[in-house]
Design a binder for these strands. Structure first.
Lengths: 233, 233
DNA sequence: CAAACCAATTTGGTTAACCAATTTTAAATC
DNA sequence: GATTTAAAATTGGTTAACCAAATTGGTTTG
């Protein structure tokens, strides 16, 4: 149960195979929402795999909200219907690993929204935490140190202030990968970092002043100079 | 390691506690990117919990891209730096469960983007699969049957055609919860479903004609009538 | 005949033992 | 003394045994 940005391992293949078999079983036995899946032991025997493999597959299905395990009771099919169940499992099995381009594309989309929501909904505590992240970034940059981490933490603080827990989760999921790629390719040197101070401050002030339009505009500008510089397009 | 939309269980609390302890350990021992975490056995003993609990906690950290387990070797800290590690773990531990409103808000944001990208990037095969989903929806509606599942599968087909694997993943993650809430509150009755046929067709044609602007406009219209109707605002 | 009770079974969760690959250590060799 | 080699210890992964809660079926009881 994961974004699976990272590894394309053997383990993964086995798990997907089991998920496919569970789907087949649901169809073959005409299991409907609310019905109970066979026990983990039975499934592991039927599929000829270990019970822990079955458990992990079920965990993944649980992550996607397709089933729900109840202790000492069983695993039950969630109320989304057979059609959707099949379609979604099909999609999950065919999902390809996110590439960096799709990550950046998604990050920009999410952040242009979270910054707007943050301007509308930020509490005083949100503001304080953002200021803290901002100061940490500035200090590092002015000391001539690398500040990619502090940079992203400022952006995460904005996501938190957006008051949208789903977007916050999604941002958390893609941020480590973003950081790793940034550090790998050595994007964003000193000049860019100095510019970042200015742009971050502009964004912060727009959020502080609860001006969603300006906040979005400044974030857009931030991304534009950032990615224009990084990929010199 | 999950969106945790569903359960707020005891299990979850234990897991978060372990994650917090691992973070403390990283800080206390000054572990840096590339360093190896103590073995699962050692951690389970040190924390006084079962090894499987430790494994699941590590899995969650692995999901968020913070560590990486290597078979017969150890679990290693990913290259994102101590600062980011602490900030992100902190955020993960404080994450609140997504509410329905934040899900819908995120869905709209994602879909207004995926529909645009789909119009730009869709292959002929994408088009075929969308047509298939569209037909399935139409058939059900014209038969007077409930078609929420087919509805969402059409939208997922668009996400797939967007060519952005990250957004596709995110859409898959939130869709089951959307379906469940829709069915629970009985949103979208017959009239709405009939209107859906027309609107879906408009969206499909815009994607077919590779007109991103129109595609987005039609999707916006679709959401507007959908949510205006459902929540009679 | 229905309701209450109880023991046997089934369940997901937990623990402990085991495995094979890897890493480390030290002995052997030149 | 440096290099090679082999054996011992360590590791995440796997398997099997065990646990307590929950379900189930039959029996008893009012």
């Amino acid at each position: 149960m994961k974004l699976e940005i990272y590894t394309k391992n053997e383990h993964q293949a086995v798990q997907n195979e089991i998920i496919g078999k569970i789907r087949d079983l649901i169809n073959y036995k005409n299991l409907e929402p609310g019905d109970k899946l066979p026990s983990e032991r039975m499934l592991s025997e039927k599929f000829g795999v270990s019970r822990s493999n079955v458990r992990e597959a079920i965990r993944k299905l649980e992550f996607y909200g397709l089933v729900k395990s109840m202790p000492q009771s069983g695993t039950f099919i969630e109320d989304i219907g057979v059609i959707a169940m099949n379609g979604i499992i099909e999609d999950i099995l065919r999902l390809e690993d996110p590439d960096f381009k799709s990550l950046v594309e998604t990050r920009i989309l999410l952040e242009l929204k979270t910054v707007r929501l943050a301007a509308l909904r930020r509490t005083d505590e949100d503001l304080m935490q953002m200021k803290e992240a901002l100061d940490a970034y500035n200090t590092k940059v002015l000391n001539g140190e690398d500040a990619i981490q502090e940079d992203l933490l400022f952006h995460l603080a904005i996501a938190k202030a957006s008051g949208n827990s789903t977007m916050n989760t999604l941002m958390l999921m893609i941020t480590p990968e973003i950081i790793m790629n940034f550090e790998k390719f050595h994007v964003c040197d000193k000049n860019q970092a100095m510019l970042g101070i200015e742009e971050h401050t502009e964004i912060f002030k727009a959020i502080e002043n609860q001006d969603p339009q300006k906040a979005k505009q400044k974030m857009k500008k931030h991304f534009k100079s950032l990615y224009q510089y990084c990929y010199n397009t």
